[in-house]
Design a protein around this nucleic acid. Structure first.
Lengths: 223, 223
DNA sequence: TAGATTGTTAATCGATTAACAATC
DNA sequence: TAGATTGTTAATCGATTAACAATC
């Protein structure tokens, strides 16, 4: 009856293993060791072993894991098998792209529809997904028992719309708006934060540049 | 001459502060304290103070920061002022959406063009951005001194294309492919990993469901 | 001055890594 | 058996939080 808590850090690495295992040729070896996975992905061997141990009990000393079994365990744990319905709120360019993006289905997510405040009656994306007015959200979500919402509205509207999503029964939000969302207890927000990633990238370039200039200076001095 | 290292954790929070500060009404108060920011964003007060201290020296006891100064310091640190050119490699649905996505410019990123292996001569997105064949990458990147690449190809091609990007002089990669990339020293990859976020979300729903069912069972037993 | 707020120094917490015993 | 690989227990590392002195 114990609810095993698994850290978010581990949780975010599991899809990496899954993708890698799925990319292996089907006619390849039946078994694979944590060591081999770690080597292929340039990750820590112990870390991989510990991560895998938290989702699968099928590891055998000397042999490793049966690839197909490990894939199953990972998929089962990540809930790839049971399909969840989801809506995308905010049908701007990014929202529309995500509506038509097939990638979600691989992770058990079925995007039912888009919702946008600017839409009066009903529209359809290039890929054939419907977009409704925002007023339809509560009805749609409750009727279809939708718990996952993807938020792609501008930053200044994000909090307001987020509140409406929570009202509509959504309890897991993938937030693309470059802002912090405040939510009640029990609601989870994952920030898919482009701004944050770009900050890390540009800082890296800056430091690299800086390092180069030091190196050049030193080289210059040593001449 | 000391290169101050700033942790990635802090770096990823800085854009949150910046977005919040920019969202304040221009006719609002001139000053703002770390305490107030923390309260508004529901973050730790000490954490905010420490984060801000790492990019700005303009904090005054009793008063806090001058909003406009803090915005400047954040923007300067995050490199929002100096525009970097970038390319998007992989012009599928997501890639095209990102090509036309205006949000990048807010963080000093100018998307020059898209590159796609399937494109023979030259195409144009709905928003007017050019898409070239992948063979043009090296020439384009070196000519325009492009250091940032956004990777939106399918997982199974990601590593190969990533290698080509590095060859072309790109040293900071924003990776949307649901896979781990192996890169040489000095190259930074930021994984904008939808799969990872979805894993965290669906695990949250699962645990919530589980908790609900325990609660229901206990309620049932207590009757 | 008094007190709010800053930045810093020390303590806590959690995640990663290392060491090792168990096992096929 | 020998040895590779597993899972676990202990040590290290880094980030967050708490306590406090400095300051306007």
């Amino acid at each position: 009856m114990e609810v095993k808590g698994i850290s978010q850090a581990i949780l975010r690495r599991l899809p990496i293993y899954l993708t890698y295992l799925k990319s292996l040729p089907p006619q390849g070896p039946v078994h694979i060791s944590a060591t081999a996975i770690a080597a292929a992905l340039h990750m820590g061997e112990v870390q991989v072993r510990k991560d895998l141990a938290s989702v699968s009990k099928a590891g055998r000393p000397r042999i490793g894991y049966i690839v197909s079994e490990l894939v199953e365990d990972l998929e089962a744990f990540l809930g790839c098998n049971d399909v969840s319905n989801a809506v995308i709120v905010g049908a701007g360019k990014l929202g529309k792209a995500l509506l038509d993006y097939e990638g979600f289905s691989e992770y058990g997510l079925h995007i039912v529809a888009g919702l946008d405040i600017r839409v009066a009656s009903e529209e359809t994306t290039a890929g054939g997904k419907p977009i409704f007015g925002l007023s339809k959200m509560e009805d749609l979500c409750k009727r279809m028992n939708i718990r996952i919402g993807i938020l792609t509205v501008p930053a200044d509207q994000a909090q307001k719309v987020c509140d409406q999503m929570v009202e509509s029964g959504i309890s897991a939000i993938l937030n693309f708006a470059p802002t912090h969302l405040t939510v009640p207890e029990g609601i989870l927000v994952q920030n898919e934060n482009l701004a944050a990633s770009l900050a890390v990238l540009s800082n890296h370039l800056f430091e690299q540049m800086h390092k180069d200039s030091i190196k050049n200076t030193q080289e210059g001095e040593s001449l």
